[in-house]
Every structure is written in C-alpha cells, then in structure tokens.
Design a binder for these strands. Structure first.
Lengths: 194, 194
DNA sequence: GTCTATAGGATGATAGAC
DNA sequence: GTCTATCATCCTATAGAC
C-alpha cells in the first residue's frame, strides 16, 4: 500500500481511539491494532505519539473548516447561515472521533504544544464564521457555545440515556431541534473501553 | 493529621492535577507530590486512581450544586436568575481544577464507570435549574451551553492569548460580559506541564 | 513498506515497617 | 497515619531484518 494511503488509514483509526480515550489514555498500540498494523510502524510514520495527536487535531479542524466554507458559499438555501452551519455540524458528528478528539484537545490547553495547536484550531473556526460568514462576535459566540454543548452531549454519550431518563430526553430535544435522530444514531451505536 | 483532613487536602491537590492533565495523563505520584505526601499513601486513602478521580468529580459537582442552590434561594437581588447563576459560575472558576476536572470527565463518557458518574453529575445540574430554579428546558439548555463554552475557553487557556490576538479579545469579551477580569486572573496566572 | 524483538522508563498497586 | 522498598505491568521508541 502507498505511504500516503496507509497514513490516512492510521489517522482515521487514531481519530477514533483518541476520541474515545483521550490523548494520554490512548496508546500507539491501540491505534495500531485499530488500523491493522504493528505498533512500531505507527511510530515510524508519525515520529511520536504527540505528533500523531497533533495531526489528528489538525485534520479534524480542517474538515470542519472545509465543511463550513462550503456551506457559507451556498446560495441556494433559504435557511439562515447560523442555522445551516448548525445542521452541518451535527451531520459531521457521524465522524464521532473527529469532534471528540478536538474536545480532548480543548481541555489540554496547559500543554505547551497541544495547547497552542488547539487554540489555533479553535480560533480558525471563529475567524471563518466572522470573516467569511459575516457573523458578529455575538453571533459567533452563540454559535460556538451551541457547538461546545453538542460536544459535551456527545462526550458524555448522553444518547445512551435517552430512553431511560425523561430529563435527558428533554435536554437532547432542546440541543438537537431537528437532528436528534442523527445524534442518537451516532451516540448509541458503539460501546467500548479497554 | 486527621484522616478526613488529609483526605480533603489530597482531594484538592488531585483536583488541580486532574484538571491540568486529564484522568489518564495525571499520575498518583504527581497528585501525591502536589499534596506533600507519598504516592502509596494516596493509593492507600482512595483505593485506586479511578476511585480518586470519581471522588474529585463528585466533589466538584456537589460544589456547583451547593453554589447554585444558594443563589436560587436568594431573594435580595434584582438580577434575573440565569444571569446570577452565570456570574456565580464564573466566580467559581477560581477553583480552576474544579471545572477542568469535570470537563475531562465529560469527554470520557465511553468509560463505563467514569461515564456513568459524569452523566449523573451533569444531569444533577440540569435538574436543579429546572426543578428548583424554574428554568424551562430551553432556558436550561441555553444556560448549560454558555457554561460549556466557558469551560472550553478555560480548558484552552484562551486567556493566554488575550493580549496578542484581537480576535481572542473579541471572543472573550462576548463570553464574559461582566466578569472578564476574573476569567483572565484565573487563566493567566499559572503555567505547567510535566 | 512493514514486521519482530526488545530496550528503557514510567506507573499503579502491594507489603510491611514505624 | 504515613513512609520506604519494590513488583509487575504497560508503553513509547529504537534497532534491525525482510
């Protein structure tokens, strides 16, 4: 297999593993097994575990930027842009690890390397919606706050309790006015842990 | 020193360490040194590292519940309750590790033990503002979303970039309409990492 | 490109003394 | 109550073969 193709496969596996276990909790061995290669080979490709995580975060950030950019460019919709970006974001949760890896990175701001990268990635989204999407700072804040709430619902696997707790039902209905089905499909399908 | 007093000291230290490094990233040895005791003694008190983290999360959740309960009971203020709870929350950021430890827990929903505890703690806050504070589900969602956004700004140590990036300034002004000074004081003081 | 073998360094937990 | 000593495990990274 070509180096770039293998690289991409490992990045996808790493995104899932980091999303579930966090940076420190994930191991290069788990990533390797998820990707179907040997542990030393993962290290060989990315140099260090830290670097692998940085690439996972960068890739996730770029995917979000690309999707939002695409949505901003659309002119065939009657819906308001904040609304459309929200729907698009929920759709992207299907790549569960993508958002979860970012969330783990967002909590590691104290780390000089990971923190710097995470801050940069976050601000890139802010800048996009303000500069290209025409959001006011207040609108951008509102939009990002909704996103962080969604991240939290995903991180908590809150969908697991949708059927058993009526309060969870109420809260999730509020958080996902139109895309509740997508959220539930994403959250409830898997169950892991070493 | 009495067992309960020592226990509390270790819990405080653990809250700081877990907040900075996350569950897996933190070590019982770092907690021990932060508390000024030996590593085996930390394990002796709490049994396992997992159990220590659970107690840290529980303690943090209870502190939030207590503060919000107190604020709900107040009758001498003209400000609306959501506003007052928001201000109160920002004040509590001074215990930086408290909120950060919770945030790390919120991202570990895939873990059967930690996830269950984290979901429970989160829903306790939701239930409090709905049942005791009289929030509608929509108001509760709005309130919690703001909280998650604040957590993210704290986790990212966004305050570090307040002076160097005008976009960060705009965003933080939006996130902390009145308590920006408190947030900056909390975020900028420390810098660590093993 | 990809693997096996393994070095080297933590880390959580236990045993047992004081 | 609290420590020192230590074991067993795990994990990142390197060496080197195919």
């Amino acid at each position: 297999m070509s180096a770039t193709r293998r690289r991409e496969l490992v990045l996808e596996a790493a995104t899932r593993v980091f999303g579930d276990e966090g940076y420190a909790g994930a191991t290069t061995d788990k990533v390797a097994r998820a990707a179907g290669v040997s542990q030393p080979y993962v290290v060989r490709i990315f140099g260090t575990k830290e670097n692998l995580f940085l690439e996972v975060m960068e890739r996730a950030g770029n995917r979000l930027l690309a999707a939002f950019t695409e949505e901003i460019a659309r002119i065939d919709s009657e819906l308001a842009l904040p609304h459309r970006l929200g729907l698009r974001y929920v759709t992207m949760l299907q790549d569960r690890g993508l958002v979860l890896s970012l969330m783990h990175g967002f909590a590691l701001g104290a780390d000089p390397v990971i923190g710097a990268s995470a801050r940069c990635g976050f601000m890139n989204i802010y800048r996009l919606v303000v500069n290209e999407g025409g959001f006011t700072p207040a609108e951008a804040y509102q939009f990002l706050a909704g996103g962080m709430m969604i991240n939290t619902m995903l991180g908590l696997r809150m969908g697991d309790e949708f059927d058993t707790d009526p309060d969870v039902r109420d809260l999730l209905r509020e958080a996902f006015p139109e895309k509740l089905d997508v959220f539930l499909a994403v959250t409830r399908s898997h169950q892991e842990r070493a």
